[in-house]
């Protein structure tokens, strides 16, 4: 069956990574949009959350879908990592990279796993907090310096992950042409930086007491 052949193939798995990655980026954008209300006021954020939860069906569909996409992205990623390790069983004595600036690409599996850890902690923190008053949960959370720092580190790792992921995704979609190189170059910096600044600002907002 062709879809199975496609999905099992090396390039099919790239497409799976790219498509799920794209979904996750869309999710991040919507998440970022929601969070951005915090910069205005916590009450606006609270009402945004309340609005969202007044449509339980959408929330449930959305979260289950998100979970599925996330799971597929992670499982495929781990699968690729394990397969790739086997493709070169014997390592070189001198281990050197020819391509410069390869930190992001080299660490995808580790940055990815770290993001998974973050997602688990983040979800737990948010869900086990005060159910009704999400704004309260957030402000309690970010009053902890350690937790705030963990979040900021996670956002840096996320940015790193996205910078390579986004570029890889375009490469998988076949978008690589000298004419667009400059714009692709910019996007792969701009998008992760945007997330880093936006998400990263929130803990600071609370740490320095301007969130309320």
């Amino acid at each position: 069956m062709w879809p199975i052949i496609f999905l099992k193939s090396s390039i099919g798995k790239k497409w799976v990574m790219a498509c799920t990655g794209l979904c996750l980026i869309f999710f991040l954008f919507s998440h970022a949009a929601g969070n951005a209300t915090l910069f205005y006021s916590t009450s606006l954020f609270q009402s945004y959350a309340d609005q969202l939860h007044s449509h339980p069906l959408i929330v449930s569909l959305f979260s289950k879908g998100l979970f599925a996409v996330f799971a597929i992205h992670i499982i495929t990623g781990i699968l690729l990592f394990l397969q790739n390790r086997k493709a070169r069983p014997q390592k070189y004595k001198v281990h050197k990279r020819a391509f410069k600036n390869s930190i992001a690409s080299r660490t995808m599996i580790y940055s990815g796993l770290f993001i998974l850890l973050f997602a688990v902690i983040h979800t737990a923190a948010v869900s086990f907090g005060d159910h009704g008053v999400i704004a309260h949960t957030v402000s309690t959370m970010f009053s902890s310096f350690v937790l705030s720092m963990f979040y900021i580190v996670a956002f840096v790792v996320l940015a790193l992950h996205i910078s390579h992921g986004l570029w890889s995704m375009l490469q998988t979609f076949g978008v690589n042409h000298p004419r667009y190189t400059w714009i692709i170059h910019k996007i792969t910096y701009a998008v992760p930086l945007f997330f880093l600044l936006l998400f990263g600002a929130i803990p600071f907002l609370f740490l320095f007491g301007s969130g309320n």
Binding site: S10, K13, K14, L80, Q83, N84, K86, A87, R88, R97, A98, F99, S102, S105, R106, M108, H164, W167, S168, Q171
Partner: peptide, 11 residues
Amino acid sequence: EGFGNCTNERE
């Protein structure tokens, strides 16, 4: 053949 998967490392 058993070649690995590309992860766009550009090596």
